[in-house]
Nucleic acid binder design. Structure first.
Lengths: 227, 227
DNA sequence: CGTGAGGTTGATATGATTCAAATCCCGTGG
DNA sequence: CCACGGGATTTGAATCATATCAACCTCACG
């Protein structure tokens, strides 16, 4: 990864609109912007590995990053999939000294890196920074709870139906949208083998769900809700 | 729940040793102790329900509390199981205005309650409080990640074997210990039906695991690791 | 000694993974 | 503009894992 780059104006714009920094202003924002460095990731490039000493807190500017845990025997499971504006690494940031999972760019991605020691230092002098981080961590914990419950409570088809419903307005009108990442990634995020995702889409065809490549057309959102 | 009780000396002792407060001292600790109130929960009593406005941050002093999400149709899935010293509600505390899951005492339990608005207020004046909360939230997020990965990567027998291994020293010596809660709770925590837990214990008998009531005897931890 | 909660066991059904093979889609070069 | 190639996706068949339902057991307690 190219490191130690100062943010371009475009990067800076993305940065100040991200989950954490958007809640800051004044000296707190300045302090954070002083320690930031921008990096570009190639597809499949690792950001860090489980067990690595945690040195950096990342914020995604563009692209998606897969957070996963792997078995010694090679099998792995996605634990979360984060996109623009989201923070990576906070689970390690203030707990253990090492990352508790691995992170890998799903595609070309731009990330902002903050030296963790300095972040901790800033947080302990600027309460608003700490509170902003608390907010992000809270949301991520809620999301992770939701993921566990979703896995345990719903079948593959139901999980896919829910995902689709989240991505179309709640007004019951027909929608069409583009998946932000390839289906294999979506499968991982939903805890499915790619084949299972495919079959789930097939099972939803009777209620007017059409999938062509990344284009998804949802004819009747209400009929999806029946699951 | 009996509320608005001041902590007894025993409560106070448990409190200052809990995950969060143990990292504090001086005025920060004092501020938190000023707003605490102690409550006693009957078995199965609800602490809060998913969707309730989040008004209180809880810390468990004694007993266990089950955090779960329920379907409209009555089925529910445990999302976490917290014991003495652990915090409940932080996922809502700094994110949404309402709890993202329900919490229920698994048995008679004592909890400390902190008014959330005041906690937020204290956190934004005392950075060490915010940082302590960040630490707890970090650990809970890591644990939740681990739970997702564990569910997706391992079978029932493997999850049970892992649980047992976590509860016996890593020195490979035979151990015997007592489950801290009934098996039905353990099943929920591991994402299993009670029947499945029972079968998993049965499957582990060949490698010297004996279960009688809550008493667990592990003859050969090393043979458990083979899973 | 009944009674009931918690736990176990068996039979069965369903859901999902796995492996293998066929097919689709998209960017590349002609 | 169109054919081509390779990775992504789909489909099929077999297998495995776990939920579910029902019956039974066990133990503590009145």
């Amino acid at each position: 990864m190219n490191r130690h780059l100062r943010p371009t104006p475009r990067d800076a714009d993305l940065l100040v609109n991200c989950n954490v920094l958007s809640r800051l202003d004044g000296p707190s924002l300045t302090s954070m912007m002083e320690i930031v460095s921008i990096g570009k990731l190639a597809p499949r490039q690792m950001l860090f590995r489980e067990g690595d000493p945690a040195e950096t807190l990342y914020c995604i500017l563009t692209g998606y990053v897969r957070v996963f845990k792997a078995n010694p025997d090679g099998r792995g499971a996605d634990v979360a999939l984060y996109g623009p504006g989201e923070l990576i690494g906070p689970s390690a940031a203030f707990g253990d000294a090492s990352y508790s999972a691995s992170a890998q760019a799903a595609e070309t991605a731009t990330v902002a890196g903050f030296n963790l020691k300095r972040v901790r230092d800033i947080a302990s002098h600027h309460p608003d920074v700490a509170v902003a981080l608390l907010g992000t961590l809270s949301s991520q914990l809620s999301a992770s709870y939701a993921c566990v419950a979703n896995d345990r409570l719903h079948t593959a088809v139901q999980r896919v139906a829910r995902y689709l419903l989240e991505n179309c307005g709640h007004d019951g009108k027909a929608t069409t949208f583009r998946l932000p990442y390839p289906k294999s990634l979506l499968a991982g995020k939903l805890g499915l083998a790619p084949e299972a995702l495919s079959r789930a889409f097939a099972a939803l065809r009777p209620c007017h769900v059409t999938v062509r490549g990344r284009q998804v057309q949802i004819g009747d959102p209400r009929s999806l809700a029946q699951f």
